[in-house]
């Protein structure tokens, strides 16, 4: 007989995992939306942020000060990337910019290890991870906390985009770069701001993922979890990153538990990509992505 309670547990667990994927995906969306670049270095930025934070804390810097200092470092990193990598590549094809971010990811990973060492660090955010039960279903307190943080971050971004001048500039650039330039918006400044925002997302995601996995090199691999989310939700939609994350999280867990045994298990990693690929075939721009309309 089908165990509905277990199914709900798997579904809830998948949705909460999906929130963690969304956190990473949002960083990609911010950059793609405004500059059309798939920033492969997002995982490396996440690693760099978490490693910087935890190294400062281990050196006796108080939690709040370490958070603030890391934030400053990420802002400086964002501005430096814009100045040294993106600005010289203005008007280059997207593949050139993508390759630049690929190279950038290796540089950031190497720099992070060179600066802070290769040791694995524990990160305790003070959130208890023992589960509580709702109608027999185990729910992780930490995952709920992560979901709340993700929700708050999305809300803040929505307000920022809607009610600030820089947010308006973001939207203008995202809508049409050339038109934005024509009306006098400074593209480099907007790009520097968006890379800074992406750095802040990397910090938040890095701390939450770091508390889950430990702060170590493997943090940079969480980008692999974000890619099917982006395909499903759309590369240029924050809402798409959230919904895509939830869907991918739920689908991969349900697939692993109920379909995995027929294939010998271990299918969740590629099951997510199968779903994303299938979606790509019927809706190339994703659930919430802007359809590309070009004059031919």
């Amino acid at each position: 007989m089908f165990d509905y309670q277990f199914f709900i547990e798997v579904l809830v667990g998948g949705l909460l995992s999906g929130v963690m994927y969304s956190l990473v995906a949002i960083g990609f969306v911010l950059i793609y939306k405004t500059s059309g670049v798939l920033n492969f270095a997002q995982g490396a930025m996440l690693l760099f942020a978490a490693l910087t934070f935890v190294s400062l804390v281990e050196r006796g810097v108080p939690f709040a000060a370490a958070l603030l200092l890391t934030l400053v470092v990420m802002v400086l990193l964002g501005i430096a990337i814009e100045r040294t990598v993106l600005r010289p590549l203005v008007n280059q094809p997207p593949i050139t910019l993508f390759m630049a971010t690929l190279g950038l990811s290796y540089v950031i990973e190497g720099a992070a290890q060179l600066l802070w060492g290769t040791q694995v660090h524990g990160l305790d955010l003070g959130i208890n991870d023992t589960p509580f039960t709702v109608a027999g279903v185990f729910i992780s307190q930490f995952d709920l906390f992560a979901a709340a943080i993700a929700g708050a971050m999305v809300a803040l971004f929505a307000l920022f985009f809607r009610y600030t001048r820089t947010g308006l500039a973001f939207r203008a650039v995202a809508d049409d770069q050339f038109a934005a330039l024509a009306v006098g918006l400074r593209l480099p400044r907007v790009w520097a701001a968006v890379w800074t925002a992406s750095g802040i997302v990397a910090l938040v995601a890095g701390l939450l993922w770091g508390a889950r996995l430990g702060v170590q090199f493997s943090l940079s691999l969480v980008v692999l979890k974000a890619l099917p989310v982006l395909v499903l939700g759309g590369f240029d939609s924050v809402a798409g990153a959230i919904v895509g994350g939830l869907l991918i999280g739920a689908i991969e867990k349900i697939a692993e538990v109920y379909v995995g045994p027929f294939f010998g298990g271990g299918i969740e990693a590629w099951a997510a990509y199968v779903v994303a690929l299938g979606f790509l075939l019927v809706r190339p721009s994703g659930l919430f992505g802007q359809k590309l309309i070009e004059r031919v």
Binding site: D3, F6, E9, V10, G13, G14, L16, S17, M20, F138, W209, R212, L213, S218, L221, V222, K225, E252, K253, E256, V257, G260, G264, G265, G266, I267, E268, A269, W270
Partner: peptide
């Protein structure tokens, strides 16, 4: 019962729910 965790293993929600059951 032998359960596989796909590389790198940074999310094991499904495997551990199976173990709990």
């Amino acid at each position: 019962q032998q359960i596989e965790v796909p590389h790198p293993g940074n999310d094991q929600q499904a495997q551990w729910l199976t173990i709990r059951r």
